[in-house]
Write a protein that binds this DNA or RNA. Structure first.
Lengths: 324, 324
DNA sequence: TTGTAAGCGTTATCAG
DNA sequence: CTGATAACGCTTACAA
């Protein structure tokens, strides 16, 4: 990294700072000779402009804040990766803010970002915390849930995903159904459950709920406890990880999947392919998800008119071995 | 977000900008009355100082760049999460840069960060790309490998981890050993293999190598191909994910784990607990890893003297069901 | 087409 | 203790 400043380059090239600035910003109205002279010095010195200074005067930072509960979920990690990839192409970078659903933390992150001239925000949070984003001065993409105010909501069709899963278990003739889900205020999971519920209630079925705390051993306990008092022949888990773990526990208990129990997970992640049997699951197209986020985020940043402020992306069920 | 600037606050409180600045920076030498007067206005208006302006004059940004190939590995995702958590406590935030081992991308990330007054850098990269970091103007924590220049290297004992795995398979009497590893230039994996090799060569054993590209189905092909020509009774995978997948394929081929084949993974991740059988694995203490990174990073930022510039953290083998 | 000078919103310096 | 005034490193009217 060179320690040259624009003034140094200007002096060395025998021009003014303004001219150097124009050359570097690809401004027109610079004579070829002078452009070359400046560029030569820039190359010689390895000069790189200070982006903070530029940021201060332009009130932008080419930085997008990405606020999420965690990166431990494979789907979220993939989304982060994909969004980062797409944003880079457009000249932005991302600052990751992991909130753990903690409102104070989230508030602090938000303030910090807003004080740093960020250009936009992508947010995944709980229902309670949406209020933080109702009146923010930069474009906000709110994931998975509606929020009043100016934000654009983008979500995959979690309700329908859950609904499809429900229909599938019903089709398999399952009567004793477990739902394995998180205890976090995860809006996607709760939408999935609503859809699932709907599918079951259409044939007058209900289900047992097994809640998993972050630690899998708690999940194991809860599952075994419920198994002690209820039979099971069908499972819907709100994530592939839960599905995979449930699959293991069930087989440890002497139940065979899919012969005795059908299992459906969510996410179509790597995990759904490394279990035996592989897991039937609901797939969201992460590339499309990311691309849509990008499109609306950039539209917001460039103040382009938007037709919609609420976008629902389709999902599909991927049949694997756990529901045969 | 308020749109007030320091000058506004100063005017409203009837003092100078300098005084407002002093109050907000918690400077001493401000009379109680004036302090209160300013603070009242600040609270009333919801004023928050612009961090970019502060950053410009102080030549720091309270931002740490975290350069890694990807976030799809569970160990790395956990490390990112932990480091982020620790850094927040210290008033820093992180910008994530996912390189995919692409040198150009990495170079661009680096330049961009350096042009933005970042305070420090945490880097996980390939051997070839270390040269990018040999002469960087901010503290660099290089993960998993040594690098000449001023950077501090922090690594877990990958070599010994591999060695332990090798010893364990030998102890189980394995003679036909497979190693399943990545085809990426992953320095940790290659260290693990060195250690593993050493353990085997001490008893004059060798092994077959199965290379996995990012897509698991390629891995499956490679594995089946090798199985067609070689017997196997022991497997060492350089990640739990590979181990889990291998476990699945082997059982599909009619081999029982651990009766016919012993498997050892790496990372002690969630994956190692959701397979049947659960996977014996090598565990790195991520909290300690993260804390060590933090300590040295902050020491570097605050220009404190450091006793060591090369830190190796211990690992341990966690015996689960796949090697019994 | 180029240079001069005035910002961007803070903090640092130096009188008072 | 407080207030002008000059940085920080760049962009951008406005002039020339």
């Amino acid at each position: 990294m060179s320690n040259f400043k624009m003034a140094d380059i200007a002096k060395m090239a025998g021009v003014s700072k303004a001219t150097v600035s124009r050359v570097l910003s690809g401004h027109k109205y610079v004579s070829p000779e002078i452009r070359k002279r400046v560029l030569d010095v820039v190359l010689d010195t390895g000069y790189k402009p200070n982006l903070i200074a530029r940021s201060l005067i332009k009130s932008e930072s080419h930085t997008i804040g990405f606020i999420v509960p965690s990166n431990d979920d494979e789907v979220i990690a993939t989304l982060i990766r994909q969004v980062e990839h797409n944003l880079i192409e457009e000249g932005y970078r991302i600052t990751i803010c992991l909130t753990g659903y903690n409102r104070d933390k989230e508030q602090k992150f938000l303030d910090d970002l807003l004080q740093s001239n960020i250009d936009g925000l992508i947010v995944l949070t709980s229902r309670e915390n949406t209020s933080l984003y109702q009146d923010v001065s930069v474009p906000v993409i709110m994931l998975d849930q509606y929020i009043s105010g100016g934000a654009v909501t983008i979500t995959t069709d979690n309700y329908y995903g859950g609904y499809l899963a429900g229909k599938r278990l019903v089709k398999n003739g399952c009567k004793n159904i477990f739902v394995v889900t998180t205890s976090s205020p995860d809006v996607a999971a709760s939408e999935r459950l609503s859809g699932f519920s709907q599918a079951l209630s259409e044939v007058r079925l209900s289900y047992e709920t097994v809640q998993c705390k972050s630690q899998l051993r708690h999940c194991e306990k809860a599952l075994i406890k419920t198994l002690a008092i209820k039979k099971v022949d069908g499972v819907f888990a709100t994530s592939d990880l839960f599905a995979a773990f449930t699959n293991k526990i069930l087989e440890q208990q002497g139940l065979r999947v899919p012969e005795d129990v059908s299992i459906i997970g969510y996410g179509n992640t790597t995990i759904s392919d490394i279990t035996r049997p592989s897991l039937t699951t609901i797939s969201q197209n992460i590339e499309t998800f990311s691309q849509t986020i990008m499109d609306y985020l950039l539209a917001g940043i460039h103040k382009k008119p938007m037709k919609k402020r609420f976008i629902i992306l389709p999902i599909e069920m991927i049949e694997k071995e756990s529901t045969q």
